[in-house]
Design a protein around this nucleic acid. Structure first.
Lengths: 212, 212
DNA sequence: GGGGTTTTCGCCTACTGGTCGAAAACGTGG
DNA sequence: CCACGTTTTCGACCAGTAGGCGAAAACCCC
């Protein structure tokens, strides 16, 4: 979600929401406050620090150090937002202000990486969802096609997927109705990667696949 | 490597090296400059941003926002350093200044995670090393025993390990002399995790192990 | 040469993830 | 109402990975 700047510098370019850090708040409180002026912050399903951007010339005039965050909202919510904001596709960004395009690309890269080794993907989906929907989100974030079969198996084996029993209505062209799943309560949002070199006696990791 | 503070606040406590950011440098240049006043910065084998620490009360007096870095040096180098600095074991930290203890623990956690899914481990070892040395570094950073067999096999399969042909002299109690390895030139320092859900037709990932 | 120590190698197993194809469950049009 | 297209779901197969273990190799010292 980008915000069209009204004032110079970089008027009419699109920028990330943000603003100045107050002396009585930490950076995460600050970005939540800044964002709250635009949208309902409670919709945010995931927030994490991304990186500090501090090149001396990243903005005109006095140097500004920015702490960038990655924030996600489920795909079913479109929070109320003012007229000067707009959702944009990460692959077709408009002309952006300052170094914000590189921040977005870094965030997209982080999201793609974390999708592979954490269950952060659930932050992109509604409370109940079909595997196909989740696969589409994964594909969009990763930039390549993901097999629904593998996605379901991988997530199920990690005990992250729990069937609700319900089904979603088929699309306009028919097709078998998809089963609905929810995020398993035991599957706490893991933000750390799975260790490859495990402690001794901890069950065997994973592997497999390959091109035959 | 910690630095014993001479002045208040928190005099005689141990702190991480650092200082104020100048207006004409970015944060990484700044930490390298600060560090250069203490040690030879060229010894640093890896530097990466860790996180921003910005709690309003993290230091007494006016609020200070800190960008913490994780920096590694190979285990064989002990750079010249002034008398007010000292190497400390991460598991037996002295009384530390400000929130620096939590920064260290965060850094240790990051290192442990990255050891599992990147080849950052080479930043801990000398140019030529034995598998046992590398295993000891892994064990120390991860906090649990690591099998030298697995470590060698995993790294070899990723084409990161290259035998030099030489051997290291056995220890004082004898034993078979260990073969020396070097960091393979093809094994660029990967700082991103391996994707678990790969693009189609990309060869099969990994798996394996488990407790029999 | 025997005993102790450390490294190295091979074998086995459990399990993972990619691929593929068949079956299931729907809508639609003739 | 039945053939067809569509989408989802499930099972089977396979290559490849990592953990565990034990035997063999290579050294020291006595």
């Amino acid at each position: 979600m980008l915000w069209e700047r009204a004032r110079e510098p970089h008027a009419h370019r699109w920028s990330l929401p943000g603003g100045e850090l107050r002396v009585d708040e930490d950076v995460e409180s600050s970005i939540r406050r800044q964002l709250a002026e635009k949208v309902d912050v409670r919709q945010l399903s995931h927030v994490e620090q991304l990186a500090v951007f501090s090149a001396p010339d990243r903005v005109p005039g006095p140097r500004v150090v920015a702490t960038a965050f990655l924030g996600l909202v489920p795909s079913d919510v479109d929070p109320e937002r003012p007229a000067d904001t707009e959702w944009h596709c990460v692959e077709k960004l408009p002309l952006m202000a300052f170094d914000h395009a590189s921040i977005v690309h870094r965030a997209r890269h982080r999201l793609g990486s974390k999708l592979s080794y954490t269950n952060i993907g659930f932050a992109l989906a509604p409370p109940e969802f079909t595997i196909s929907l989740l696969r589409d989100h994964y594909s969009a974030a990763l930039g390549y096609r993901v097999s629904a079969t593998n996605l379901q198996r991988v997530l199920s084996r990690r005990l992250l997927l729990e069937p609700t029993g319900g089904t979603a209505p088929p699309g306009p062209s028919g097709g078998r109705p998809a089963a609905l799943f929810r995020f398993s309560a035991k599957g706490i949002l893991v933000t750390d990667p799975f260790a490859v070199l495990r402690p001794p006696g901890s069950g065997r990791p994973a592997g497999g696949g390959g091109t035959p």
